[in-house]
Design a protein around this nucleic acid. Sequence first.
DNA 1: CATTTTAATATGTATATACATAATAAATAT
DNA 2: ATATTTATTATGTATATACATATTAAAATG
Lengths: 242, 242
Amino acid sequence: MKLSIDHSSPVPLHIQAEELLRKMIEDPEFRNGKFLPNEVELSQQLEISRTTLRQALNKLVYEGLLVRKKGIGTKVSEKTVSSKSMNWKSFSQEMAARGIPIRNFELHISWVKPNEDVAHFFEIKTDQKVLKLERLRGRPEGPFVYFVSFFHPNIGLTGDEDFKRPLYEILETEYNVIATLSKEEISARAADGFIAGKLEIDTGSPVLFRKRFVYDQADKPIEFNLGYYKSDSFIYTVESRR
Amino acid sequence: MKLSIDHSSPVPLHIQAEELLRKMIEDPEFRNGKFLPNEVELSQQLEISRTTLRQALNKLVYEGLLVRKKGIGTKVSEKTVSSKSMNWKSFSQEMAARGIPIRNFELHISWVKPNEDVAHFFEIKTDQKVLKLERLRGRPEGPFVYFVSFFHPNIGLTGDEDFKRPLYEILETEYNVIATLSKEEISARAADGFIAGKLEIDTGSPVLFRKRFVYDQADKPIEFNLGYYKSDSFIYTVESRR
DNA sequence: CATTTTAATATGTATATACATAATAAATAT
DNA sequence: ATATTTATTATGTATATACATATTAAAATG
């Protein structure tokens, strides 16, 4: 793992520092409230100025990954599986950033005829098949979320992509599709037999249900996503200011 | 309106600058894609260094209120921060906007000793009583939400206010308290006996649970709110753009 | 006239420096 | 032994400075 900063690189030092800090945060050594080295020391280790280091730290503090305390130090924030209202990070990235190890329990790829909802959102006919991606993900102890995604046929996805890579990265680099707008609807539901089975809970147990519509720069629909979150394993957070 | 920075104030300059910028952004003159003065000019106007001004700008850029473009300038973001305007309507206003007629089934006002959570949020001791407001609201056919609110004792609320008026209006006009920041946590829960009774559903049925922390301009806590929404009667929507 | 070069403008990156303030630990006085 | 003071440590605030880079407009060139 690269643990130093390349001064000859065109990548800005504070960006390199930020990425490096993210890796540190993921490291079990620093997880769960562990303190980072102090700013002066750390800046010397990385061979950058304290100001530049603080630029990187600030970003992670804004995101809630780090907590600073005057006179004390800077520590990795306590992990609560929560989602800051859509930071446009992938699921894995967000979980990794919080030091939560993610396991993919199931991955199922298929081409299916869309139902009315999906066809309507994509503005296509119900006989034009779309790529369906089902995923069961969670902690090593057990799954806590079941995702179902549908992708617009025009994107060009074949189903042979490496879905272990972040989805938005695949879309951006391979297909030049940039997810720009997201509309979400969140509600509570009782788990039906299928979902209960997947999440290993009792039928009828409450789950957080998230429906998500994703659009590209031109507001063209690209993804329709359904997520079923096991109760208490996932908290959705929204912060707003007027 | 204060439009200058007080160097003798104990409030940090970059915080003062941030608040000032927020006011500028609200101003119709700057809204919707208008450019701010450039950094050097603005820092001279405010009589602070460019570095300090950038500290304030960074925060607003991170929040998505401002957009910077190298070589061009900094403008007010054009996106209609929908979650913003949406969330700051009162419950009745929001329902009215959706064309849903609202009936108030129960209203209960009391002064109670706060529990640990509430006392901690308000930064008071558990023996200082706070105003508690319980409300059961919904459609004429039946209730679909049960709210519990606690208010900080320093606001000055007596409990004799007319709670049929929008709450934020009462706070603003009568007590000069302006709710500015709201943090929400949304999760799914199983209804306990009490909630199930209120919402007229079976114990164990899923409900959407919303915890809400409300702060004033100075980030002082003013309200702690819990909401239990009957499943499928309420959908929480979030729209975000990058 | 069209193209290229140059200048002007505004944000981006990076450092060095100085002092303020909160929290804790160590030393001192009562 | 117990307060009180003092020193230490780490983040917080603020400035001055220098140069890099993206964008646009103006000037020079063919």
